[in-house]
């Protein structure tokens, strides 16, 4: 335990102005303690990959950052706003924090373009023409502009996930959360989504990404966080993390996912 904590403190993160600060965050599902004393600070522009065995609380943690899940103890401050029961504050945070889900969660009754313009029009109160222009720009960026007038059900999984990313970007978020964005995809579609995410990272977007794509972690992450049983066990630069993991749990996890 002390060992792992020193490992986590091996380098002090982050090195810039923080946009997300979690202090002593705990969460329970009924009796089950899912998140234990999470301390996390994320700097603007930082790219973080969160990994760990299933059930370790990674998804729950990033879902707490836009209050899709409620934490019961500790504090979470996002973009200078503390997440509490205050609905107005929650909505303010959610405007600035984009989220991409494992199962895309596109709105099936709206076209691709309407999926992208809905929130800018209704939440940001943008004029329709402006919202559409911006949506087309982001759809081009994820290389799917020619499908703008189709419905999500007519697209492949990889295409749907790219639309989901464009939909989030249309809100001009300050932070993007990715919750296992490639886990539900057929293998041949993983790359097209990862390419979009790498492009985003290169443009300096602040990203927190729960993923098992270790290649992605190695090539773009500034920091890799390893979670197990509801706690942050270890965090380090990808280089240090993969080459000299500190805790036994990290070593075990890495040996399981890398040796095949």
């Amino acid at each position: 335990m002390t060992m792992t904590q020193t490992a986590g403190a091996a380098r002090s993160f982050p090195q810039g102005e923080p946009i997300i600060q979690c202090q002593g965050v705990h969460k329970w599902y009924g009796e089950f303690h899912v998140l234990k004393n999470i301390d996390l600070s994320v700097a603007k522009g930082e790219r973080i990959v969160i990994c760990g065995p299933s059930g370790s609380g990674k998804s729950t943690m990033i879902r707490c950052l836009n209050r899709l899940e409620e934490h019961q103890k500790g504090s979470i401050i996002v973009d200078g706003i503390e997440l509490t029961g205050n609905l107005k504050n929650i909505e303010l945070v959610r405007r600035e924090v984009g989220m991409v889900f494992q199962h895309f969660n596109l709105f099936p009754h709206l076209t691709v373009l309407e999926n992208c313009t809905l929130a800018p029009i209704w939440v940001r109160k943008k004029p329709k023409a402006e919202a559409e222009e911006m949506a087309m720009r982001y759809l081009k960026r994820v290389r799917i502009a020619e499908q703008a007038h189709k419905y999500p059900g007519q697209l492949s999984g990889g295409q749907q996930q790219r639309v989901a990313i464009a939909r989030s970007l249309c809100m001009s978020p300050k932070v993007m959360l990715f919750d296992e964005p490639t886990s539900a995809l057929d293998p041949e579609m993983v790359k097209e989504v990862l390419d979009v995410m790498i492009g985003l990272a290169e443009d300096g977007m602040t990203m927190l990404c729960v993923t098992h794509e270790m290649g992605f972690a190695k090539s773009v992450a500034d920091r890799v966080i390893f979670m197990d049983r509801g706690e942050i066990v270890e965090q380090n630069t990808p280089n240090e993390f993969f080459n000299s993991p500190q805790s036994d749990r990290t070593k075990l996890f890495l040996s399981q996912i890398l040796n095949h």
Partner: peptide, 19 residues
């Protein structure tokens, strides 16, 4: 997931329900 996607985009309750 539809409720969550609507919430995550910052839509309020009536917008999420209505749209």
């Amino acid at each position: 997931g539809q409720y969550e996607a609507a919430d995550a985009l910052g839509l309020n309750y009536w917008q999420a329900m209505g749209k």
